[in-house]
Amino acid sequence: MTSTPSSASPHSQRVALVTGGSGGIGKAVVQRLAADGYALGIHFASNRSAADALVREVTDAGGQAIAVSGDVGDEADMIRAFDAVTHSLGGIDVVVNTAGIMLLSPIATLDLADLDRMHHTNIRGTFVVNQLAANRVRRGGAIINFSTSVTRTQFPAYGAYVASKAAVESLTLVLARELQGADITVNAVAPGPTATPLFLDGKDEATVAKLASAVPLGRLGEPEDIAETVAFLAGPGRWVNGQVIFANGGLA
């Protein structure tokens, strides 16, 4: 069942920019929002072929989409991306920031270069995207960031990654309150174990099975599960604001 985009926007077609939109959860979000009638800006960092293929998928189905590139932590890159979406699609109503990297290591042995890489993409990148979104998203719109359920489960080796995502949660809650009167909601989605290349990379079958069994619903999440939550926050979920939504099948 698809949801209807919010009637709060006076524009005939809603436009969404999805960072990290060429694969994993980002791709599922693009597909879900396209099904709801959104025009899409599909952002990618390096995989142009995947982004172009997704653009073709959306346009072949009768939708509108363009691919935009850039480093989310580089404000000049992201200004160009926001400008391209605005120029080609007429404006921006929803920004979904799925772009992120996850580098795992015990805190005691973490390569600090990996910490800096995650800080650049996960913290600075979220800040840059949110700063632009706060100034570009139209009334009736939504800003949706991505955290992780590991901020609550405290799995070993996730310390630096979780620290970056805890920063995303705090930024989200503050921005929601700073945008009082703008009629723009700001929320974060915190997925649990989800079957994406980012999550599965480096994990053996036993580890994956153990994580799946920890979920009361007895399986890993699928990207489409997370996309459903995003679609709700982007469209009909107008009374949900300044929240972190744990989309994790009940993982404690």
Results as ranks from 00 to 15, higher is better:
167 A>E: 07
38 Y>R: 09
221 G>H: 07
204 D>L: 03
15 V>G: 00
221 G>V: 02
3 S>V: 15
85 V>A: 08
145 N>Y: 05
127 F>M: 14
103 L>F: 02
203 K>F: 09
46 S>N: 13
50 A>S: 14
92 I>V: 15
229 T>N: 04
239 W>M: 14
22 S>L: 02
67 A>Y: 10
187 N>C: 03
145 N>C: 10
195 A>W: 05
84 A>I: 00
73 G>C: 11
29 V>W: 00
48 R>G: 11
146 F>E: 09
200 L>S: 14
182 A>Y: 14
7 S>L: 14
124 R>M: 12
19 T>W: 06
114 D>A: 12
113 A>C: 03
4 T>H: 11
38 Y>S: 04
106 P>A: 11
180 Q>D: 11
130 N>I: 05
164 S>D: 06
53 A>P: 01
43 H>W: 08
10 P>Y: 08
238 R>A: 13
197 P>D: 03
37 G>F: 07
243 Q>R: 15
32 R>C: 03
158 Y>W: 15
169 E>H: 11
246 F>N: 11
52 D>L: 12
66 I>A: 08
175 L>F: 01
147 S>Q: 11
241 N>R: 04
169 E>P: 03
194 T>Y: 01
26 G>D: 01
181 G>E: 00
117 R>H: 10
4 T>S: 12
167 A>Y: 05
11 H>C: 00
244 V>P: 02
15 V>A: 07
6 S>Q: 07
127 F>D: 00
64 Q>W: 04
160 A>W: 04
177 R>E: 13
131 Q>M: 09
100 G>D: 05
215 V>T: 15
72 V>M: 03
48 R>V: 13
146 F>Q: 10
171 L>C: 01
205 E>Q: 14
118 M>Y: 02
152 R>D: 11
165 K>D: 11
36 D>Y: 05
204 D>I: 02
149 S>F: 04
247 A>R: 04
66 I>Y: 06
51 A>T: 03
180 Q>F: 11
29 V>H: 01
36 D>F: 06
185 T>E: 06
139 R>I: 01
176 A>F: 04
209 A>F: 03
93 D>K: 12
246 F>Q: 07
87 H>M: 11
210 K>C: 00
77 D>A: 12
128 V>W: 11
47 N>P: 01
42 I>T: 12
3 S>T: 13
65 A>H: 10
170 S>Q: 13
213 S>L: 09
190 A>K: 11
199 F>R: 12
238 R>H: 03
11 H>R: 14
35 A>V: 03
69 S>I: 00
126 T>K: 00
29 V>N: 02
201 D>C: 04
207 T>V: 13
25 I>T: 09
40 L>T: 08
97 N>S: 14
93 D>Q: 09
240 V>G: 08
188 A>D: 05
145 N>E: 10
203 K>S: 03
8 A>V: 03
158 Y>T: 15
3 S>R: 15
230 V>P: 01
7 S>M: 08
119 H>A: 13
104 L>Q: 10
156 P>A: 12
138 R>E: 12
69 S>W: 01
23 G>C: 10
73 G>R: 09
188 A>I: 09
